[in-house]
Amino acid sequence: MSPRRAIAATLAAAAAVATLPWLTSDFALSLALTCVMYAGLTVSWSMFSGVTNYLSLATAAFFGIGAYVTAWGLGTLPYALLVPTGGLVAAAFAALFGAAVLHLRGAYFAVITFGLGELVRHAITYFEKTYAHTVGRVIVDVPGSTAVFLTVLAVSAAAVVTALAVRASRFGLALAGIGSDEARAETLGVGARRTKVAGFALSAFFAGALGAAMAVRWTYIEPNSVFNPFIGFQTVLISMVGGAATIAGPLAASVVFSLLTEFLRLQFPYLFLMLLGALLIALVLYLPGGLASLAPAVRAWLARRAAGDARG
């Protein structure tokens, strides 16, 4: 699919999903909200980490920063303005942090990004205790669930459109070259450092904006809930299950994974995390390229079936 058509298809799909608040129950809508949030988180994560192989565990940090922008700003600024502000603060933070650590690769980069999440969480806890004399914040005067859903949907759709545009661009080519062989890309004229910092910041923008948009879902915000490392791990896992080098893979996996998690949680409340873990291990062992790597096989199977139908 050409980038232009893929973007048009994304916008059409987002418009269709935008009707959900008027069609479904509150329960189904909250489930859809989780799907859409993870779609945005995973696609924006893959945009940088999936393409460059710089595995970031900092999603929780950016998400939490965005959430705290809302927690601090709500009441002063309108919600619609807080969401992009949360994104920008997270992006600025990612740019600073990225400039300092993006020369590290592999496990070192993963570990230091995880450390970043912990650092920010404890820094905010300390700040709140010492200066604001509070451990958490009660969020009042929140927008309705329809407004939240549409906002999260808008951010996630923007993430997908951005990922598609980046992939088709010169910037995307530079990121792919860095992922494939960074030193080679440098000798062909790519300023790897600047490219990586820009990609990392762009990816963080969406995580921050989603955190800012989602913050109003919780009536009480504290560092331990919004800087939950689980969000970071979940994002990485879903992206990998879907196929981190693609855009459609993480998108599809977000929906499948969120629904599956919810189903398992309701059906097997005590076993569900174990089942989820076993499933992940099986997927990583037997489908390392993610769900997206099944696409050619499925297409071939469909073609064979179509050919068989034509004969029969």
Partner: peptide
């Protein structure tokens, strides 16, 4: 200066073991 500056000034090279972007 870093390698990309050399490249932009017109220095291009190959490597002893070919380094191509394998998936492209």
């Amino acid at each position: 200066r870093p390698a990309h500056v050399f490249a932009r000034h017109g220095v291009a090279r190959t490597f002893q073991t070919p380094r191509v972007f394998r998936d492209m």
